[in-house]
Measured scan of single mutants.
Amino acid sequence: TTYYDVLGVKPNATQEELKKAYRKLALKYHPDKNPNEGEKFKQISQAYEVLSDAKKRELYDKGGE
């Protein structure tokens, strides 16, 4: 599973699309609303952290993490 899959976006997604997808999923899986989905929330946050940063995203796209 790639970070793009976690957020449900395509690899060519814009920053705005990433932000929108992250917010939607973060609300859905937030531990306050969904106590059993803490791990999913962490995955979503990690994916967004990497993909929202241009340098980290470039490194990730080249095969790094």
Score class of each variant (00 low, 15 high):
residue 1 T to S: 11
residue 1 T to Q: 11
residue 2 T to K: 05
residue 3 Y to T: 01
residue 3 Y to F: 11
residue 3 Y to D: 01
residue 3 Y to M: 05
residue 3 Y to C: 05
residue 3 Y to A: 04
residue 4 Y to V: 01
residue 5 D to M: 08
residue 5 D to N: 07
residue 5 D to L: 06
residue 5 D to A: 08
residue 5 D to I: 06
residue 5 D to Y: 06
residue 5 D to H: 09
residue 6 V to M: 11
residue 6 V to P: 00
residue 6 V to L: 14
residue 6 V to T: 07
residue 6 V to S: 04
residue 7 L to V: 02
residue 7 L to C: 01
residue 7 L to E: 00
residue 7 L to W: 01
residue 7 L to G: 00
residue 7 L to Y: 01
residue 7 L to S: 00
residue 8 G to R: 05
residue 8 G to D: 05
residue 8 G to Y: 04
residue 8 G to E: 09
residue 8 G to W: 03
residue 8 G to C: 07
residue 8 G to V: 03
residue 9 V to H: 00
residue 9 V to Q: 03
residue 9 V to C: 09
residue 9 V to K: 01
residue 9 V to T: 04
residue 10 K to I: 04
residue 10 K to W: 08
residue 10 K to Q: 08
residue 10 K to C: 13
residue 10 K to A: 12
residue 10 K to S: 11
residue 10 K to D: 07
residue 10 K to M: 10
residue 10 K to P: 13
residue 11 P to Q: 09
residue 11 P to G: 05
residue 11 P to V: 12
residue 11 P to L: 06
residue 11 P to E: 07
residue 11 P to Y: 08
residue 11 P to R: 10
residue 12 N to H: 08
residue 12 N to Y: 10
residue 12 N to P: 03
residue 12 N to I: 06
residue 12 N to M: 06
residue 13 A to P: 01
residue 13 A to Y: 02
residue 13 A to N: 01
residue 13 A to E: 02
residue 13 A to L: 02
residue 13 A to I: 06
residue 13 A to C: 12
residue 13 A to D: 03
residue 14 T to W: 01
residue 14 T to Q: 03
residue 14 T to E: 04
residue 14 T to S: 14
residue 14 T to F: 02
residue 15 Q to F: 15
residue 15 Q to R: 08
residue 15 Q to T: 13
residue 15 Q to Y: 13
residue 15 Q to L: 15
residue 15 Q to D: 13
residue 15 Q to C: 09
residue 16 E to N: 10
residue 16 E to T: 08
residue 16 E to K: 12
residue 16 E to L: 10
residue 16 E to F: 08
residue 16 E to G: 09
residue 16 E to C: 08
residue 16 E to A: 11
residue 17 E to V: 04
residue 17 E to M: 09
residue 17 E to W: 04
residue 17 E to Q: 12
residue 17 E to F: 03
residue 17 E to G: 05
residue 18 L to H: 00
residue 18 L to I: 15
residue 18 L to D: 00
residue 18 L to K: 01
residue 18 L to N: 00
residue 19 K to L: 13
residue 19 K to M: 14
residue 19 K to P: 00
residue 19 K to W: 10
residue 20 K to D: 15
residue 20 K to H: 10
residue 20 K to V: 14
residue 20 K to W: 11
residue 20 K to I: 14
residue 20 K to A: 14
residue 21 A to N: 04
residue 21 A to F: 02
residue 21 A to Q: 05
residue 21 A to G: 03
residue 21 A to V: 05
residue 21 A to C: 05
residue 21 A to S: 06
residue 22 Y to V: 02
residue 22 Y to T: 01
residue 22 Y to H: 03
residue 23 R to H: 13
residue 23 R to T: 15
residue 23 R to Q: 15
residue 23 R to M: 15
residue 23 R to D: 15
residue 23 R to Y: 15
residue 24 K to C: 12
residue 24 K to V: 15
residue 24 K to F: 12
residue 24 K to W: 09
residue 24 K to T: 14
residue 25 L to A: 05
residue 25 L to M: 09
residue 25 L to E: 04
residue 25 L to K: 04
residue 25 L to R: 03
residue 25 L to H: 04
residue 25 L to N: 04
residue 26 A to N: 06
residue 26 A to W: 15
residue 26 A to Q: 10
residue 26 A to G: 05
residue 26 A to P: 00
residue 26 A to R: 09
residue 27 L to C: 11
residue 27 L to M: 13
residue 27 L to R: 12
residue 27 L to Y: 11
residue 27 L to D: 14
residue 28 K to C: 09
residue 28 K to W: 08
residue 28 K to I: 12
residue 28 K to N: 05
residue 29 Y to F: 07
residue 29 Y to T: 04
residue 29 Y to L: 05
residue 30 H to A: 10
residue 30 H to M: 06
residue 31 P to R: 05
residue 32 D to P: 13
residue 32 D to H: 09
residue 32 D to G: 08
residue 33 K to C: 12
residue 33 K to D: 07
residue 34 N to A: 10
residue 35 P to C: 07
residue 35 P to Q: 09
residue 35 P to S: 07
residue 35 P to D: 07
residue 35 P to N: 06
residue 36 N to C: 12
residue 36 N to T: 12
residue 36 N to A: 12
residue 36 N to W: 10
residue 37 E to P: 06
residue 37 E to W: 11
residue 37 E to Y: 14
residue 37 E to N: 14
residue 37 E to A: 13
residue 37 E to F: 12
residue 37 E to D: 14
residue 38 G to T: 13
residue 38 G to A: 15
residue 38 G to P: 10
residue 38 G to E: 11
residue 38 G to K: 14
residue 38 G to F: 14
residue 38 G to W: 14
residue 38 G to Y: 10
residue 38 G to M: 14
residue 38 G to S: 15
residue 39 E to T: 07
residue 39 E to S: 09
residue 39 E to H: 12
residue 39 E to Y: 06
residue 39 E to M: 08
residue 39 E to A: 12
residue 40 K to L: 11
residue 40 K to I: 12
residue 40 K to D: 06
residue 40 K to E: 06
residue 40 K to G: 04
residue 40 K to F: 11
residue 40 K to C: 09
residue 41 F to L: 06
residue 42 K to C: 10
residue 42 K to S: 08
residue 42 K to A: 12
residue 42 K to Y: 08
residue 43 Q to T: 09
residue 43 Q to M: 08
residue 43 Q to S: 07
residue 43 Q to A: 13
residue 43 Q to I: 12
residue 44 I to F: 04
residue 44 I to P: 00
residue 44 I to C: 03
residue 45 S to D: 05
residue 45 S to M: 11
residue 45 S to W: 14
residue 46 Q to T: 11
residue 46 Q to P: 00
residue 46 Q to F: 07
residue 46 Q to N: 10
residue 46 Q to I: 11
residue 46 Q to A: 12
residue 47 A to N: 01
residue 47 A to I: 06
residue 47 A to V: 04
residue 48 Y to Q: 00
residue 48 Y to S: 01
residue 48 Y to I: 04
residue 48 Y to T: 00
residue 49 E to V: 07
residue 49 E to P: 00
residue 49 E to F: 08
residue 49 E to G: 09
residue 50 V to C: 08
residue 50 V to W: 04
residue 50 V to Q: 04
residue 50 V to P: 00
residue 50 V to Y: 06
residue 50 V to G: 02
residue 51 L to V: 04
residue 51 L to K: 00
residue 52 S to H: 06
residue 53 D to A: 02
residue 53 D to S: 05
residue 53 D to K: 03
residue 54 A to K: 11
residue 54 A to M: 10
residue 54 A to W: 08
residue 54 A to S: 09
residue 55 K to I: 15
residue 55 K to E: 13
residue 55 K to C: 14
residue 55 K to R: 10
residue 55 K to G: 14
residue 56 K to G: 07
residue 56 K to Y: 07
residue 56 K to Q: 12
residue 57 R to C: 03
residue 57 R to A: 03
residue 57 R to S: 03
residue 57 R to F: 03
residue 58 E to M: 07
residue 58 E to S: 06
residue 58 E to Y: 09
residue 59 L to S: 10
residue 59 L to Q: 15
residue 59 L to F: 08
residue 59 L to P: 03
residue 60 Y to I: 03
residue 60 Y to N: 02
residue 60 Y to F: 03
residue 60 Y to T: 02
residue 60 Y to Q: 02
residue 60 Y to E: 03
residue 60 Y to C: 04
residue 61 D to L: 03
residue 61 D to E: 05
residue 61 D to W: 02
residue 61 D to N: 04
residue 61 D to F: 02
residue 61 D to P: 02
residue 61 D to V: 02
residue 61 D to A: 02
residue 61 D to S: 03
residue 62 K to N: 11
residue 63 G to C: 14
residue 63 G to Y: 15
residue 63 G to S: 13
residue 63 G to R: 11
residue 63 G to N: 13
residue 63 G to H: 14
residue 64 G to I: 15
residue 64 G to D: 10
residue 64 G to V: 15
residue 64 G to C: 14
residue 64 G to H: 15
residue 65 E to G: 13
residue 65 E to D: 09
residue 65 E to I: 15
residue 65 E to M: 15
residue 65 E to A: 11
residue 65 E to R: 02
residue 65 E to C: 14
